[in-house]
Design a protein around this nucleic acid. Structure first.
Lengths: 350, 350
DNA sequence: CTTGCCTCCGCAAACGATTGCGGGCGATGC
DNA sequence: GCATCGCCCGCAATCGTTTGCGGAGGCAAG
């Protein structure tokens, strides 16, 4: 039974090969074809035959149609503030990779930490019928996110929390990390430790400050607000902070910089004044970045665990996408920070 | 039991509000609702009424269904090797932003410069029925890309070219950039200029080398292969290259580093030997990165125009997505490089 | 009042897949 | 040899939109 008659249309032209074409060529119904390609729903004979024919004809399922029917687009939104910050960059890379390995695609959206853009983004992603969402929220659109979650679309927040909501969240252990970093400097004998930190409206800014403060107080050293410079996470801020802290009469013997971008500015500020690290001043940075390990001297850091955060966020979301862990109350996860000693901190001689 | 008893279910629960719900509420047909919301296809009265009702009910069109019908997913694939390289990072940021402004979403895919991953990625994106593709190709999957283009999905290559194909391509003007950079160093009186460059299997590696070579030859200085270190674009390579070039008896007076990642390694190598920039040696880098401007001394660079490339690539693709510029032969665009003088290059005294 | 044109809306057929239900048929048991 | 059971497969509905086509109605012209 050789069906010499087939191949009516050139499948290479505009229209792609559809399941119907395959079914026709194999002389079975569309439903059988569908089941055969799904596997395990027909006899082994037809299954193999159809898979062969489908492959020969170059059939590729139409994800749109499938998604319409199965109510699942295999798309996941990935919303970050930018890609310059190392945490976000790593997040994007890792999440994308993990999702793809699990058969999902990531739609990348950048909000520039702007609530309006975020709102628009969420709406669009929702229209796009994403199956899930990994987002570093601004904190202004909690209602929208909660609505999504309510509608059955799992949402996982990462790096930042959305205060008003009870969404699953993966965070860095900022209080502990900042605490450990400060303790490290204290352990080296430093007593006047300057802090360049982010805005106190953000969780990370507050938490990093509080960890620093707690370490000082536990060591019996009073917290001195004048040793703290608050600003955005940017080189300019770092430079300003560095200048301010170094202009004091009792210049700090160590600097703790709570973000890698401001660290660039701090390094510049130190170079300006010909201050050598670590000879004249010890420098510790929160968050690692590629340059730090190669720099001379290599900068010691408290690694906030961006990679682990990304992995956990992806895995948590995937688990929920698979329908597991359904009713489990939304949890908050913390990724432990890790001190990486390099060459920028030095024991204070007295 | 075959009645149409599925009356008004609570729309707030799982199922979203559909066009049908809106139509029912407005007591018009689905087609009228569709036309009214599209705008300009009904009387102004019904148009406004339906828009109001739709908004009240919180209607959001289902992009999957629409895409199935209109054969357009409003999705564009964005395929890069990684996000660490500044060019790719900028590309991702800019393209994402431009596409979104035009109503498209970007699906981010990272290939790690691996042909197999790239092949799988292209297939998946094709299944996903992306409307277009912006890709930094490995060069191994030209046939697949050409097939996509053939099937009516515009493909724009960026940063790298896919040799075998005739796809639209946006590239940096690497030969000219490298030429200009080398000329700059020559103009400062340098005669022994070391080059740390990428693998010669890649276009950019070849082109940057050839620009360097041409400048030397035009200046009447012979090309000396022993002054060239070839390797991957990574800090380790830079370090190795730096060591090799500095171990010569007639140490070069200037180094031209053809990639910002290897530059990290070079800086480390220089620091190891206590070589001061620019006092002992001039350093020029191809491709800018955030740290360079803040570094002390700030590193002079040949900016390869990543942002302009990204913008052009996005705009070209968008134009083709709009159906303009259809039959125009696939063109190749070059983005001019620009020398940014900072403090790492110095006139050679004799 | 009739005719004709134009505007606006509804019917129904797609788009390409998945899936409940029931029928056909071969194998099995007695 | 007949009834029963199960395995495969086909029919048709469905997911939520868009869109060609034709019908209904309004208004102006004759």
């Amino acid at each position: 039974m050789l069906g010499a008659m087939q191949e009516t249309l050139p499948p290479t032209l505009q229209g792609a090969v559809t399941l119907r074409d395959v079914a026709r060529a194999a002389k079975v119904s569309v439903s059988t074809a569908s089941r055969a390609l799904a596997g395990g729903l027909t006899s082994r004979a037809t299954e193999q035959r159809l898979q062969r024919i489908a492959a020969e004809m170059g059939y590729r399922p139409n994800t749109l149609a499938r998604g319409l029917k199965t109510r699942s687009s295999r798309l996941v939104g990935l919303v970050v503030h930018n890609l310059t910050n190392a945490s976000f960059r790593v997040l994007a890379e890792v999440v994308q990779q993990r999702l793809r390995a699990a058969g999902y695609q990531a739609i990348l959206c950048i909000t520039a930490d702007d609530a309006e853009q975020e709102a628009a983004t969420i709406a669009t992603l929702s229209d796009q019928r994403v199956d899930g969402l990994i987002i570093c929220p601004t904190g202004q659109n909690g209602a929208q996110l909660a609505a999504l979650e309510q509608a059955g679309v799992p949402v996982t927040c990462v790096v930042r929390r959305d205060e008003g909501t009870r969404l699953e969240t993966v965070l860095a252990a900022d209080p502990e990390g900042a605490y450990a970093g400060t303790q490290h400097l204290l352990g080296l004998g430093h007593r006047r430790i300057g802090l360049v930190v982010g805005r106190q409206e953000t969780t990370s800014g507050r938490e990093r400050l509080s960890g620093y403060r707690r370490a000082l107080e536990e060591a019996g050293i009073g917290f001195d607000a004048s040793l703290v410079h608050e600003g955005r996470y940017a080189p300019e801020t770092g430079l300003a902070g560095c200048r301010q802290l170094l202009d004091r009469d009792d210049r700090p013997t160590a600097l703790f910089v709570a973000n890698h971008e401001s660290a660039l500015g701090v390094l510049r500020g130190l170079a300006e004044r010909d201050i050598l690290v670590p000879e004249h001043l010890s420098l510790l940075c929160y968050e690692d970045m590629p340059g730090f390990a190669w720099q001379r001297p290599a900068i010691s850091v408290v690694d906030s665990g961006a990679e682990a955060m990304a992995e956990l966020a992806a895995d948590r979301l995937l688990q929920r996408l698979r329908g597991e862990g359904g009713s489990r109350a939304a949890r908050e996860y913390r990724i432990g920070a890790r001190l990486i000693e390099r060459q920028s901190c030095r024991r204070l001689e007295d």
